[in-house]
Amino acid sequence: MIEKTRVSANFSSVPVVLLLGLLSLPLVLIYAYLFIDTISNSDAGSLVPSEFTLQHWSFLWETKPGKPNIWLVTLNTFVFTSVITAVILLVSSMAGYVLSRLNVPARGFFLAGVMVLHAFPSVTLIIAIFIVLQYLGLYNSLLGVILVKAAIDLPLGIWLMKGFYDTVPWEIEMAGIVDGASRFTVWRRLVLPQIRPAVMALGLFSFLSGWSEFILPQVLAPGAQVQVLSVYLASLIADDNNFDFATFKAVGVFYVIPVLILYVFFQKHLMNIYGGGTKG
């Protein structure tokens, strides 16, 4: 949350700021050089840049040999991330409602199952998933990896949504029903708007999670046509023939920009999910 720092009469904040500043300096330097190195060349062993250059960003306008086009990769990443977000939002918001409110058979079993799936480390499944996808012909396709990633992230989403639905008063639903609305209308028009902040938060959360996903696309969709940015980035550093550390950094900066933008605009919503349920 953005809050104005209040001046406390009891103690001065200067020592604290100094100490924190000192401790954070290495981090700040790392981030600063991550950026500086992408737009400059330095002599070997020197920390001071010797010339300004844009050659490290050249991946933006020319495709490196043996690498896919960066814009195709970016597009893939956006498609991958957006579809995952949409699927997670759609399924979690409905499944969470069902688990929270409807008297479905084996409700306890589903609740426990969702919990177990959430706790299950997805990497242990990856060989099995690989074989399944290959069998289905979805290996090396965006659709396949999207399905897998969405499925793995769903338990958390469902569980979170259920928690938020639990805070919506029953009376609102009863009122909707005696007002003549169907159960679906009640959900869509009355209950869902009550947890809008949570839906926003889950959407952002899924987007960030999808954007930074590496291991699933790396294993399940490594092909040039379906690469996402994280895989592209990894392939740069794995390429021993054309090792270019500055370009690697530039792609890294390029990769992180959308995340930074999201954080700047939506950090308040993200806090919602970490800070527990608040009604908006």
């Binding site: 008063p169 009376e171 609102i172 009863m174 009122a175 708007p193 809008r196």
Partner: peptide, 9 residues
């Protein structure tokens, strides 16, 4: 209803 159950949004 006792709590009125108005739709807050």
């Amino acid at each position: 209803f006792q709590s009125y159950a108005l739709y807050p949004h």
